[in-house]
Nucleic acid binder design. Structure first.
Length: 289
DNA sequence: AGACAGACCTGTGAGC
DNA sequence: TGCTCACAGGTCTGTC
């Protein structure tokens, strides 16, 4: 990365960045909004259409000259509210955004540039191309990608009562249940494992057989895990002046994820690993029931 | 309807 | 050293 092109508020990206979980998406939102807000879109450059879904060939034309009114977020979707529509932009598993004062030469995997009327460029990089870009001129909540989404994990809508009621009769493993975006948005594989550890719930326990009191603990754990990560994300953002590498906060904060056979920080038993629905799952057999 | 498998993609690291 | 191959991840789609 050419350091001359990096603004202080830019979001550094490199190959070792963790997958964008909710805190990373929110950090991205806060980072990119100020330099873009209120400006008009001069041009959208799509160098690689083959993202998770092909980027519409009509998109560039539809965005032209529209003013950016706000940058919001729903789950892990970033919402760019324009005069007469909204861009729904997902970072996928490897996507990242940064602000450039001028769009210099793109590097590998720099698939999309959104260029504003003053030349400011929002550059999207996504090596694995699991990201996506949609546009809608209808109320954005009604878009098919958003309309079935559950509550935001840090909002007042996520309560123990809600999870308890929603889970009744479900035989699904609790880890699946909380990773389902219809239940609650934004809980990826890593934070799901962490939140279940923090609340002492075994990841394979049937969702319908978790008592309401334990859901209260789970909600607190989800809150704590995401809030902590959000604060770290902010710190990371401010500290991202060198282009060297991963912030380093990431692994150190994790209690179980990717710690197979390492000792539990609470009871010292070895952390266990299993595959739950094709997903790596980590837990402590002593602390989680 | 719920539950689950499959699809998408590439950087990484293990094993040969 | 260089090759192959499994794996990681989010989330929609399709099938049972």
């Amino acid at each position: 990365m050419n350091s001359a092109t990096v603004l202080p508020e830019s979001l550094g990206y490199d190959k070792e960045r963790p997958v964008p979980e909710l805190p990373e998406v929110e950090t991205t939102r806060r980072g990119i909004a100020p330099p873009l807000l209120g400006k008009k879109i001069r041009q959208l450059i799509v160098r690689e259409r083959r993202l998770r879904w092909p980027v519409s060939s009509r998109l560039a034309k539809r965005l032209q000259q529209q003013q950016l009114l706000s940058v919001g977020r729903r789950g892990k979707y970033l919402l760019f509210q324009l005069d007469s529509g909204c861009i729904i932009w997902h970072l996928g598993m490897s996507g990242s955004m940064r602000i450039l004062p001028r769009p210099g030469a793109p590097e590998k995997h720099d698939h999309v540039d959104l260029i504003m009327d003053d030349g400011t460029c929002l550059r999207f990089r996504d090596p694995r191309r699991f990201g996506s870009i949609h546009y809608t001129s209808k109320p954005v909540d009604e878009h098919k990608l958003l309309r079935h989404l559950g509550p935001e994990p840090l909002s007042a809508a996520l309560t123990a009562e809600y999870l308890f009621m929603k889970s009744r009769g479900r035989k699904q493993a609790i880890k699946h249940f909380i990773m389902d975006s219809k239940t609650v948005v934004g809980l990826g594989n890593i934070y799901a494992s962490e939140a279940l550890f923090a609340s002492g719930i075994h990841p394979k326990r049937q969702a319908g057989r978790v008592a309401s009191g334990r859901y209260a603990g789970l909600v607190r754990a989800i809150h704590a895990v995401l809030t902590q990560a959000m604060e770290k994300g902010g710190t990371t953002l401010r500290d991202f002046t060198d282009s060297r590498g991963r912030p380093g906060y990431f692994r150190h904060e994790l209690a179980v994820y990717d710690r197979k056979d390492e000792s539990c920080r609470v009871c010292r038993r070895p952390i266990k690993h299993l595959r739950l629905g094709q997903r790596a799952t980590y837990y402590c057999g002593g602390c989680q029931r």
